[in-house]
Structures are given as structure tokens and as C-alpha cells.
């Protein structure tokens, strides 16, 4: 993502904030839509577009779970493991997806083909549909079982890549 593209995205929003620093997080989220995570060049582009230093921009980026500063898979699958989902089988869903994608139960991770990242999520706010799963920042879905979750990942793997990566 280039600084000009980020500027173009921010321009119509600029008047809404008394301090332009508020544009840093929207800029990071937008910059991430290019490849699904932020490279050093992306963060430098955000710095240039917002007028803050690259180190400041990185300090903001690293605070938030949904801003990725390391490469992740084409699709990021977040499995909610908080209390309500735990009671409705989230741990079994989580382990099934980790096993399917060949990543470890403790940290999750990205499949060898780079298509799918499985990560734990803290409460996604869909406890009435536990166990729930969110793909990127799409609408959270559930209830899921190990079988339905595996089928979901199969669908994702077969689907074309998204045009933009909102996460």
C-alpha cells in the first residue's frame, strides 16, 4: 500500500477528528487490506500519510490483536475460546482445526500451504451462537462443531482470494 493510497482513503475522514493522530488506526487497518498484514514498507507508508514517525506507528500497530505485523494466511480463522464457547465445545472445535491445518494446539498458526491461519479469539460477542468462528472480519458464525468447522475451512481453501483483506 502506498502513502498516496492511504492519504486518499483518509482525506474524506480527516475533518471528523480534532487531532489527526486519530487517523493512525484507520490508516493501519486500511493499509492492511492490501495483503492482509503489514510489512515494514506499509508502516512507513502509514507514517508518511499521517505525519507520525514509523516507530510511533509501529507502537500503535503492535498493541492491537487484529493488526498483523507478521505474515498470516490468506484467510484468518478466529475460533472463540472464551467461557460461553468453551462450555459449548469450542476447545474441540479449536483442536480439530489445529489438527486439520497441522498447527500446534497452544498457539495455532498458519498452514504449510499458507492458505489458512488458525488463531484463538477472546469473546467475539456471539455467545448465543457458541461455539462461534469468525473468518477475517466477516460476520461471526455459529454454532460450530468440529465437523462443520472443518467443512468451513475446506470451503475457504477452495474459494477465490478476497479483493481486500479487512481483518
Amino acid at each position: 500500500m502506498t502513502a498516496d493510497q492511504i492519504r486518499e482513503y483518509l482525506e474524506p475522514r480527516r475533518h471528523e477528528f480534532a487531532d489527526p493522530r486519530s487517523l493512525v488506526l484507520p490508516a493501519l487497518k486500511f493499509a492492511q487490506t492490501g495483503r492482509g498484514y503489514l510489512t515494514r514498507e506499509d508502516m512507513e507508508a502509514v507514517a508518511e500519510a499521517t505525519g507520525y514517525s514509523a516507530s510511533y506507528v509501529e507502537s500503535v500497530a503492535t498493541f492491537y490483536d487484529r493488526v498483523y505485523t507478521e505474515p498470516v494466511g490468506t484467510r484468518v480463522v478466529s475460533v472463540c475460546v472464551s467461557m460461553s464457547c468453551q462450555l459449548r465445545g469450542a476447545d474441540q472445535v479449536w483442536e480439530a482445526l489445529c489438527d486439520k491445518e497441522g498447527v500446534d494446539h497452544h498457539h495455532g498458526g498458519t498452514s504449510a500451504d499458507g492458505r489458512i491461519t488458525v488463531q484463538e479469539a477472546q469473546c467475539l460477542g456471539y455467545c448465543d451462537r457458541a461455539a462461534c468462528i469468525q473468518v477475517d472480519a466477516e460476520e461471526t458464525q455459529g454454532p460450530h462443531t468440529p465437523d462443520s468447522a472443518r467443512a468451513l475451512v475446506d470451503e475457504l481453501r477452495a474459494a477465490p482470494d478476497p479483493d481486500e483483506y479487512w481483518r
Binding site: 475522514r13 471528523e16 477528528f17 487531532d19 489527526p20 493522530r21 486519530s22 487517523l23 493512525v24 488506526l25 484507520p26 493501519l28 487497518k29 507502537s59 500503535v60 498493541f63 492491537y64 490483536d65 487484529r66 493488526v67 477472546q122 469473546c123
Partner: peptide, 25 residues
């Protein structure tokens, strides 16, 4: 204005929310 967070429970605490809305950690 609708302002999106990016995954941090602590931003529900009101002063942390303000920090985040101001473009900080």
C-alpha cells in the same frame, strides 16, 4: 463518526477507549 477498534478488550475501559480513539495504544 463510527470508529473501529482493532481487537483489544481493554478499550472498553473508558479512558483506554479515549486513548485508542486519539490514535494511541
Amino acid at each position: 463518526t463510527v470508529y473501529r477498534g482493532a481487537g483489544a478488550y481493554i478499550c472498553g475501559e473508558e479512558t483506554a477507549l479515549l486513548e485508542s480513539l486519539e490514535g494511541k495504544r
